[in-house]
Nucleic acid binder design. Structure first.
Length: 775
DNA sequence: ATTGGTTATGTTTTT
DNA sequence: CATAACCAAT
């Protein structure tokens, strides 16, 4: 930007400010308390907002953005706003839109560190040895890569697990270190001092694959800025104002990234709460908060301590608990709200995790009867493994629930396989994807045949797909391996040719069908095969929201949070980590047991610091509740498959008596006290006869065929479901049909669910019946 | 050489 | 209990 341009913008903003001063104070400001308002109005210069849970942190951030826009100090595209999760980014966008209207749409730089990093890298890819189309690796790919490197280096993967290597590499990347910069002693411990060398190999391999991992999305922008002052300068000028949410969770790389961008105009506002720092294991440095005032002298510091969210009982419980931590800045949350009907935090126990789930389910239903919406209830667990018991229970009682996070949709095997197929179509050079699916379903291509191909690839410096074609030109492969590979490559050519001719959802279905993937699952007798098929349908359904296959794949790499679909009222089930930033009327906190929460591993690995982080997690959990919190623990829990007795969490003893109510009679479950044996469960079961959910379950049992009851509760999508469902085609040869993209036509031939149709305008096409309607 | 069945092993949290 | 590495039979 030239100097004159800059001046003109400044003049506009001075004029706007003058005008604003004479105008009455806008509504959005009068709605704030004095501290919040100070945080919003301190527009220029560095600002540190220490905001306790429920003190209106998000409100300050969104109002601040709105204020900057209203004053005319910057255009939407000149504001950098960083959040930690995609969910938070989406929410912030909505809330800004609510204040300033459609302008929020024009905020391209509102997002996570990772998504903004990606955006910057794609623009300047060549400066960091990548191509703009680079792919983003996920954990699975990373592990595969690391294993390859380890075996190439003749390192015993038993002794030095790939995961461990990746952990170290990720740690370095999170600290902003390239292999050259890693302190010598740091890599010593791994494989007799080969750690750094392996990091270098891994990094080279990523570049060769034109790929980046999550760590690179932070590390590479730093390298880009450092090595290209002109690029850095352009971004420093672009981002007139910068805001960062959840600052306590930033790691060193993110800190460096921000500091580089902010050191010029210093208009950086960070918001955080040291008591909610729960990502230490990912390299987050709470110290970043403490360092802020040193790095940005003269920063305005605002403390938000007035809580608007929770009842006094919940606040007391949370505050009392967190006070057991030593390393904190120390904030005191308070509220003036008087709640005559405030209820103490309930602590209750169950015999085992199943009873815990049953009781919580019953409690939720009883609250629902009293008028609390299921949308306003959440179950927050420490580990994803805990979710299963709840899901099982909800499925049997027919309680509708929503899982946030969990075993993430895009990480499931069948989804990743499907995506690998799609990637091979759009990016033939993506070796990792090709490797993943060459022999899935089995095509007679084992390790040996694959080695032949990869050796040719390495020798000629070509992608695997190309090497495979080269190998087929010779007669090196014989029999099944040859025909299998031939068939696969032919299929890829066919699919690629249809890329522009067919709607991408339809092509996706064809790929899954023709590759034999769906057939493989149909033939699979194991219990989860139907669920996997269902997931594939869900995948294709979600693709409908995107323009094209490449657009969809780009989205998938970064978005991990399964979009909780709105609509039906449902109770939310998620991890404590995923719950940060959210709030609910009622919160259930199961699994408060020693070893599970606080997690044994956190304490083993990080001692006191680990324990304190767990405690902060407990604090986060409690403060999610507006009106009521239920803490549960089970006396027995299945760990690595076998039953183990468990002791109540120490955190329970750290709650203040005055705000806690211990439930002596174990409520809806019905076993008397702790002494019950497992045989009592039969009794228990019948005694929960009268809960609404149980009755509903019984009703269902009558009219739902047996097989379907086992399936996960996924919404049955008509569009796709029909195509995979078997049975006679709904169409006849010669009948008139309509297709979304091709318009009207006549059915020429039917072959399973694939129809050949002569379209009036588009000509003869082969399509899948679910995309057709009777005209 | 590939496959499918077996056994051993190990599990936090997320962009 | 669930997945991954491993091995024996084709």
């Amino acid at each position: 930007m030239s100097r004159t341009q800059r001046e003109s913008v400044n003049q506009v903003s001075i004029a706007a400010r003058a005008a604003a001063a004479s105008r009455p104070v806008p509504d959005y400001l009068t709605a704030l308390n004095p501290e919040q308002r100070r945080a919003v109005e301190a527009v220029d210069g560095p600002v540190l907002v220490l905001a306790g849970a429920g003190t209106g942190k998000t409100r300050v951030l969104t109002t601040r953005i709105a204020h900057i826009l209203a004053l005319g100090k910057a255009r939407p595209a000149e504001i950098l706003a960083v959040t930690f999760t995609n969910k938070a980014a989406r929410e912030m966008k909505e809330r800004i839109a609510a204040v300033v209207g459609g302008q929020a749409e024009g905020m391209p730089w509102l997002g996570t560190f990772h998504s903004i990093g990606t955006r910057i890298l794609r623009r300047h890819a060549e400066l960091v040895d990548l191509e703009p189309s680079f792919t983003i690796l996920d954990t699975d790919d990373q592990i595969r890569l690391a294993k390859q490197i380890l075996s190439a280096e003749n390192i015993d993967e038993k002794r030095w697990p790939a995961r461990q290597l990746l952990g170290a590499i990720d740690g370095w990347k999170n600290r902003g270190l390239t292999p050259e910069e890693v302190p010598k002693s740091d890599g010593e411990w791994f494989a007799h001092g080969k750690g750094v060398h392996l990091y270098k190999l891994y990094r080279d391999r990523l570049k060769a694959l034109n790929a980046a991992d999550f760590g690179d999305l932070l590390l590479e922008p730093i390298r880009l800025f450092r090595n290209n002052p002109d690029v850095l300068e352009s971004y420093q000028q672009r981002f007139r104002y910068m805001l960062v949410d959840e600052y306590q969770d930033t790691n060193v790389a993110q800190y460096l990234w921000l500091r580089l961008l902010a050191q010029k105009n210093r208009n950086l506002c960070v918001v955080g709460d040291d008591d909610q720092s729960i990502y230490g294991w990912r390299g987050a440095e709470v110290d970043n908060i403490l360092r802020f005032e040193t790095d940005f002298p003269g920063a305005t510091v605002v403390r938000l301590e007035r809580n608007y969210r929770s009842t006094s009982h919940i606040l007391a419980a949370a505050s009392h608990l967190i006070a057991h931590n030593e390393g904190r800045l120390g904030k005191t949350l308070f509220t003036d709200r008087v709640d005559p009907d405030a209820v103490p935090v309930t602590v209750a126990s169950a015999w085992d995790s199943e009873e815990e789930a049953r009781a919580i389910n019953a409690e939720a239903e009883s609250l629902q009867k009293k008028g609390v919406s299921l949308d306003e209830m959440a179950i927050l667990v420490r580990t994803t493994a805990q979710m299963r018991a709840f899901e099982d229970r909800f499925v049997t009682t027919g309680t509708s629930y929503r899982v946030v996070g969990g075993p993430r949709f895009y990480e499931r095997k069948e989804i990743r396989d499907a995506l690998a197929y799609f990637r091979c179509v759009t990016q033939p050079a993506y070796d990792l994807a090709f490797e993943r699916i060459v022999n899935v379903p089995a095509r007679g291509l084992g390790q040996v045949s694959l080695r032949v191909v990869s050796e040719v690839a390495r020798a000629n410096g070509v992608p695997l797909m190309q090497a495979a074609a080269d190998v087929l030109a010779t007669d090196e492969l014989k029999g099944k391996a040859r025909s299998g590979l031939l068939g696969l490559l032919g299929a890829f050519d066919r699919w690629r040719a249809q890329l522009d001719a067919l709607p991408h959802t339809e092509l996706a279905e064809i790929i899954l069908e023709e590759s034999g993937y769906t057939d493989m699952l149909k033939a699979d007798r194991s219990a989860d095969a139907p669920g996997r098929l269902e997931n594939l349908k869900e995948l294709i359904r979600s693709m409908e929201d995107f323009e094209s296959l490449p657009a969809f794949l780009e989205h998938v790499s970064l978005v991990t949070d399964a979009q909780g679909e709105a609509g039906e009222e449902a109770i939310t089930l998620m991890t404590l980590h995923a719950a940060k930033g959210l709030e609910f009327d009622v919160v259930f906190l199961p699994g408060w047991e020693e070893g599970l929460f606080p997690s044994m591993r956190a304490m083993d690995e990080n001692g006191q610091a680990g324990l304190e982080e767990e405690r902060r997690l407990a604090y986060v959990g409690l403060t999610r509740a507006r009106r009521q919190a239920f803490v549960w623990f089970a006396l027995n829990r299945r760990l690595h498959g076998s039953w183990q007795a468990s002791a109540p969490s120490r955190f329970i003893d750290e709650l203040p008596e005055a705000s806690v109510m211990v439930r002596e009679d174990v409520g809806y479950g019905g076993i008397g006290g702790y002494g019950g044996s497992r045989f009592d469960k039969v009794e228990t079961f019948s005694s929960s006869y009268h809960t609404p959910g149980w009755e509903r379950a019984q009703r269902r049992r009558e009219d739902v065929p047996r097989r379907e009851r086992i399936l996960p509760t996924l919404i049955e999508g008509e569009l796709v479901a029909r195509s995979i469902a078997n049975g006679p085609s709904a169409f006849d040869v010669g009948s008139r049909v309509f297709h979304q993209k091709f318009g009207n036509g006549n059915v020429a031939a039917i072959e399973g669910n694939k129809l050949t149709v002569d379209f009036d305008r588009a000509g003869r096409k082969r399509v899948i019946d679910s995309f057709l309607t009777k005209a």
